[in-house]
Design a protein around this nucleic acid. Structure first.
Lengths: 241, 241
DNA sequence: CCCCTATGGGGAGCGCTGCTCTCGTTTGTT
DNA sequence: AACAAACGAGAGCAGCGCTCCCCATAGGGG
């Protein structure tokens, strides 16, 4: 009977989900390397070896957590973008940046797992690349639509990409996340995007300690500056910050 | 006698240095969490417990490696800056950025130890903060001198720092690394600086994989764009990249 | 000069980890 | 009812950080 076979599979799916959930809780408190399969097993009330029926290795468990993390971050970024006026490209950029930062502050260990130093010995499988692009896709769409709408203040003069390799890379960027955008804008978009994550990394990993304390306010300014770098319109009534 | 007492202390210092050196080699191949005191002891030909006479814990060993790492990075950054014409502030900025990236690519695990996600449970002692500032000080001096020389194209209009907290933070930045620089420039300098590290982090930690392959060339463009964000002069004969 | 104490070694051991193997039980299928 | 696949538990292996204890020895004080 189908329902009985499903019953077995359903309890399996449920246990798999429960293990991942407990693991995610441990990850939030202990970090990726502190995550212990045995501790998860204890909390599940099962033997440590039994957990290996569900996740063949700690790396597989980490992969699940990574994918979930990318999806969670992607979702909040998508929602942040969706909550904005579609024509307000500058506002969407700011909303997306703040969504990333807020999520990172709320889930520091998970963020570190996604954007921090990779766990040694861990090789990210192909399943992670699609979720990993969710936030970037949102960002790319903003730039793309801003460009299409003519809302982008493209800096004067041609870009002079120089090496042909950059053009190749930008073609890939265009194809995957930022259709229709010229090279010069795409380069700056990549710069701005990495800049946001660099900023958040500095904040999260302690580089700002004892120097920059009013992070939210400074983040606003950095996001505005990086947005201006892409050519996105500034918030109304703001001077050149 | 003094020399005999010194003899004992000298062999101790030598052994301490040797342990740290082997540990740094292991760090380069295995990463920080993969670094094993027992493995270092084996390679030293001594028992694992004996190593604890020199480093009371793995964290202390890591602290040494972190300090050494900051100093090594700081040195190459200082040398890169020193190799430039002092008046060519844009060139100095580019040289410093490339020095950071080159060192990071040459010592990825060490870089991750400095600027990646912190090792869980590890609390950086106060001894690390001074070495950690060496590269930032070089960067700040460039901006400071460029501003002093009037070489900085400060963006039109006041800045509108808004929150007073940002002004506080910028005062601290000014005092520690960037004397004489106005808030608007300091904010952009922080943005650019974190942007460089964000870029390098993306490259090093795999975020660019399968998308951006011609990293050196794109890094040039990003550095130029971030330099322009601060107002540093562009390389002669380059268009607005 | 001789003793004696601090210093630096080695070995054993504790509790933890990821992971494997085996063995018995349960569950769903034919 | 028989059988195979799935599942759980326990023991065990090798590794880890770290501690404790014991011993040799080197250096300094009487």
């Amino acid at each position: 009977m189908n329902s009985s076979r499903t019953a077995r599979e359903r309890v399996r799916a449920e246990l798999t989900r429960e293990i991942a959930e407990i693991a995610r809780r441990h990850l939030a408190t202990e970090g990726a390397v502190g995550l212990s399969l045995r501790a998860v097993a204890r909390e599940m009330g099962m033997s440590s070896s039994a957990v290996y029926r569900y996740f063949p290795s700690k790396d597989d468990l980490l992969t699940t957590l990574i994918i979930d993390g990318y999806n969670a971050l992607g979702r909040v970024v998508e929602q942040a973008d969706a909550g904005c006026d579609r024509a307000d490209h500058g506002g969407r950029w700011r909303a997306v940046c703040h969504a990333v930062r807020d999520w990172a502050l709320a889930h520091p260990h998970e963020y570190a797992l996604l954007y921090g130093s990779p766990v040694p010995g861990y090789q990210a499988p192909q399943d992670t690349v699609a979720p990993a692009m969710r936030d970037t896709i949102v960002f790319g769409r903003i730039v793309s639509e801003a460009h299409e709408a003519g809302a982008l203040t493209v800096p004067a003069g041609p870009m002079g990409t120089g090496a042909a390799g950059v053009a190749e890379d930008m073609a890939r960027v265009r194809e995957q996340v930022m259709p229709g955008v010229p090279d010069a804008v795409a380069v700056r978009a990549v710069t701005a995007w990495t800049g946001v994550f660099g900023w958040i990394g500095f904040e999260l990993f302690g580089q700002f300690n004892n120097v920059i304390e009013h992070r939210a306010a400074l983040f606003d300014h950095s996001v505005a500056a990086l947005g201006a770098l892409i050519g996105l319109p500034r918030p109304v009534g703001e001077s050149t910050a």
